[in-house]
Amino acid sequence: MFSPSRDQARQFLFDSWAKYRQAQPLTDLEKIALAVILRHPEYHAMLDAPERYLARDYTPESGETNPFLHLSMHLAIEEQLSINQPHGVVELYRALCQHHGDEHRAQHEMLDCLGEMIWQAQRSGTGPDGQLYLSCMRRKAGLGE
Rank of each mutant, 00 (worst) to 15 (best):
Met1Gly: 15
Met1Ile: 00
Ser3His: 10
Ser5Pro: 01
Ser5Asn: 07
Asp7Ser: 13
Ala9Gly: 05
Gln11Asn: 09
Leu13Thr: 02
Phe14Val: 01
Phe14Trp: 06
Trp17Leu: 05
Ala18Ser: 05
Gln22Leu: 08
Gln24Phe: 02
Thr27Trp: 04
Thr27Lys: 04
Thr27Phe: 01
Glu30Ala: 02
Leu34Val: 06
Ala35Lys: 05
Leu38Pro: 01
Leu38Ile: 02
Arg39Gln: 12
His40Tyr: 07
Pro41His: 00
Tyr43Ile: 01
His44Gly: 06
Ala45Val: 12
Asp48Pro: 04
Asp48Val: 04
Arg52Lys: 15
Arg52Ala: 09
Tyr53Ile: 03
Tyr53Cys: 04
Leu54Asp: 04
Arg56Gly: 08
Asp57Glu: 15
Asp57Arg: 12
Glu61His: 13
Glu61Ala: 15
Pro67Tyr: 07
His70Ser: 13
Leu71Val: 15
Ser72Asn: 11
Ala76Ile: 02
Ile77Gly: 09
Glu78Gly: 06
Glu78Met: 08
Glu78Lys: 05
Glu79Pro: 00
Gln80Arg: 09
Leu81Ile: 08
Ser82His: 10
Ile83Gly: 03
Asn84Ala: 07
Pro86Val: 03
Gly88Asn: 10
Gly88Val: 02
Val89Thr: 08
Val90Ala: 11
Val90Asn: 14
Glu91Ile: 12
Arg94Asp: 09
Ala95His: 11
Ala95Met: 07
Cys97Trp: 08
Cys97Gln: 13
His99Gly: 03
His100Cys: 09
Glu103Phe: 03
His104Phe: 09
His104Pro: 08
Arg105Asn: 06
Ala106Ile: 02
Gln107Cys: 04
His108Trp: 00
Met110Glu: 14
Asp112Ile: 14
Asp112Thr: 14
Cys113Ile: 12
Glu116Arg: 13
Ile118Ser: 04
Ala121Pro: 03
Gln122Pro: 06
Ser124Leu: 11
Ser124Pro: 01
Thr126Met: 10
Pro128Thr: 12
Asp129Val: 04
Gly130His: 06
Gly130Arg: 10
Leu132Cys: 05
Tyr133Asp: 00
Tyr133Pro: 00
Leu134Gly: 03
Lys140Asp: 10
Gly144Ile: 00
